[in-house]
């Protein structure tokens, strides 16, 4: 197990190095930020001075070297636009995204898996068909449209939930959270629901397919032949048998939603990182883009690593396979 962790940590480090290069190069290719940072009426001298100060006069490899060296020391650079450390900028926005994404993904997983198992156990029932119909809807309707409809229905028409913003927040461990206040919670409902729909549809499909397969397996037949009740079979056999694909998708979705909840954050004017990255792309705020993408890569690597560890916890065959190698 230790060898596995070390091996994966080295792999992760390599991925991070390669990713940081790709990101740096990609952002470099997007365009020259100088034209946006400097007012059009600036003199040549001022221009030269800014370029030198931002380190944009150095050759590319040197720029990357400085960036990587600073990165290793935990310095992600300063935003050209806000003129503050990038890490602080992203750190200030991250809790908002984090709480929104976690709430929506947990909700999507718990309800999606429950509904999916129900539909898998009773595939012919009317409720199962309704669930599957809803999941197709969840897949096919575009997210931004659902967001608008949610606002129109629940905020404008019924006036139950607010249409946007984060609401009241409360400081816990030095971070602002809104899900801990009643008002903040009411602000989170609609965007979380909006984010959750697609994932819930996916979880329903996964859980249903897995359950149907498991219910037909010899494991379940054998358990039934031993007189084990259906509830116990579902809880102890089926739930475990279907968990691996569900955890895989959970990890992938968690990563991609954390990084790219942009559409929902924009519609509900949720002050998360998704909005930050879009804004910094429009103004070519290079340090923010680079840091954000590197952090995203890091989040993905960490999530995948955790998912692999969880697999090994669930499946003894993976554990012993690794001991041998």
């Amino acid at each position: 197990m230790l060898a596995f962790i070390i091996q994966r940590a080295l792999q992760a480090a390599l991925v991070m190095v390669v990713m940081s290069m790709i990101v740096f190069l990609g952002v470099y290719a997007v365009g020259n930020p100088v034209d946006i940072v400097i007012p059009p009426d600036a003199t040549i001298a001022m221009r030269e001075e800014v370029i030198r100060r931002l380190g944009l006069d150095l050759p590319l490899w040197k720029q990357y070297g400085i960036f990587a060296w600073n990165l290793l020391q935990g310095d992600f650079g300063r935003s050209f636009i806000y003129n503050m450390p990038v890490l602080e900028l992203i750190g200030g926005r991250l809790p908002a995204t984090l709480e929104l994404v976690l709430i929506s993904i947990l909700f999507a997983t718990v309800t999606g898996v429950s509904l999916g198992i129900y539909a898998g156990v009773n595939p012919e029932s009317r409720i199962a068909k309704l669930i599957m119909g809803l999941s197709i809807l969840g897949f096919s309707v575009p997210s931004f449209w659902v967001g608008l409809i949610l606002i129109l229905t629940f905020a404008v028409h019924f006036g139950i939930f607010p249409a946007g913003g984060r609401g009241e927040t409360v400081m816990v461990f030095g971070v602002e959270w809104s899900f801990l206040t009643a008002n903040g919670l009411s602000h989170i409902v609609l965007p979380a629901l909006n984010l959750a729909l697609f994932k819930m549809a996916m979880m329903i499909r996964l859980a249903r397919a897995g359950t149907r397969e498991a219910m037909l397996s010899d494991t379940v037949k054998f358990a039934r032949a031993a007189g084990i009740s259906e509830a116990t079979i579902l809880r102890r056999h089926v739930l475990k048998l279907i968990s691996i694909p569900i955890i895989t998708v959970f990890g992938l979705e968690l990563g991609s939603t954390l990084a790219f909840a942009v559409v929902t954050e924009t519609i509900f004017s949720w002050p998360g990182v998704g909005k930050l990255i879009i804004d910094s792309i429009t103004v070519l705020d290079r340090p923010v883009m680079v840091a954000y993408l590197v952090l995203t890569a890091f989040v993905f690597v960490m999530i995948n690593f955790t998912v692999d560890l969880v697999f090994a916890l669930i499946d003894p065959r993976i554990r012993s396979g690794r001991q041998k190698s």
Partner: peptide, 28 residues
Amino acid sequence: AMIFQDPIATLNPLLTIGQQMEMALAAH
């Protein structure tokens, strides 16, 4: 009771033998 053809398919690969036996025991 019933026994099947392929024991690799009838036993749950994710649970120990003991867990599976105790489940069958607890059924009655």
